[in-house]
């Protein structure tokens, strides 16, 4: 392994973010190495979404700096060139799927490769079909998102992000909007992605899944990273009492 491949693909240094008076992220320090799977946990409103949305510039931050795959984001969104490159290399899966309802499943997946990467339709379609097959929905390619179940929609959203051949995937509670019986199929697809070596940052409340796939778990409380370690460390012997009380609450049900 060369030095450059083990360099962090994401590096956040003293990142601070405010929404008006609300200090949402406080001195965030985070480095993620290629191939690493990092799970972010924490109570509602603690800043988990904001944290990962800063990485692909969906949120601006006010202090500190973020580097993604060699591209540097500076405070207050003044880095549009780098931002564009980052978004091309970083995929994101949202809680509400956010599929494009006016496009077929296939067109959802081919849009960005064609418009951003400049692929022709044949190449984009071939890649899309391969990815849809991989997430188990190859037979639904000509349908529209509204004709699919939630679990199927989320798997399409995953295929859509993967079609850009990202170096890093961000997941913001990918199973929270799903009926319980569909959570498994989405987690399975993510598990496989992790096994293939994709670098992933995942916000989730699925603690069993986190324990299984995470290389590292980060607990965030009121905008601060208060605990960080292997799943074993964080789940079995949390050092911070905030973590203990959070875990005792979520693991009860």
């Amino acid at each position: 392994m060369t030095a450059s491949t083990s360099d962090p693909i994401v590096r956040m240094e003293r990142v601070n973010k405010h929404f008006g008076d609300l200090h949402v992220l406080k001195d965030i320090e985070l480095a993620v190495k290629p191939g690493e799977v990092v799970v972010v946990i924490g109570a509602s409103g603690s800043g988990k979404s904001t944290l990962i949305r800063c990485i692909n510039g969906l949120e601006e931050f006010q202090q500190g700096h973020i580097e993604v795959d060699g591209n540097e984001l500076v405070p207050d969104g003044k880095s549009s060139k780098a931002l564009q490159r980052i978004r091309t290399e970083v995929g994101m899966v949202f809680q509400q799927f956010n599929l494009f309802p006016h496009l077929s499943v296939l067109d959802n997946v081919t849009l960005a490769p064609m418009k951003v990467r400049g692929w022709n339709r044949a190449d984009a379609t071939e890649t899309a079909e391969r990815l849809l097959d991989r997430v188990g929905i190859s037979d639904q390619a000509s349908k529209y998102p509204s004709q699919l179940s939630g679990g199927q929609q989320q798997r399409v959203a995953l295929a859509r992000a993967l079609a850009m051949e990202p170096r890093l995937m961000l997941f913001d509670e990918p199973t929270s909007a799903l009926d319980p019986e569909m959570i498994g199929e989405v987690l399975d697809a993510m598990r496989e992605l992790a096994r293939e070596g994709m670098t992933m940052i995942i916000v989730t409340h699925e603690m069993g899944f986190a324990r299984e796939v995470a290389d590292r778990v980060i607990f965030i409380h009121r905008g601060e990273i208060v605990e960080e370690g292997t799943p074993k460390q964080v789940f079995d012997s949390p050092g911070n009492e905030r973590t203990q009380s959070f875990l005792s609450r979520v693991l009860k049900h």
């Binding site: 564009q84 970083v90 849009l111 951003v116």
Partner: peptide, 10 residues
Amino acid sequence: QREAGLSLGL
């Protein structure tokens, strides 16, 4: 919708 588009690099 816009965020999904931007996150794909559009």
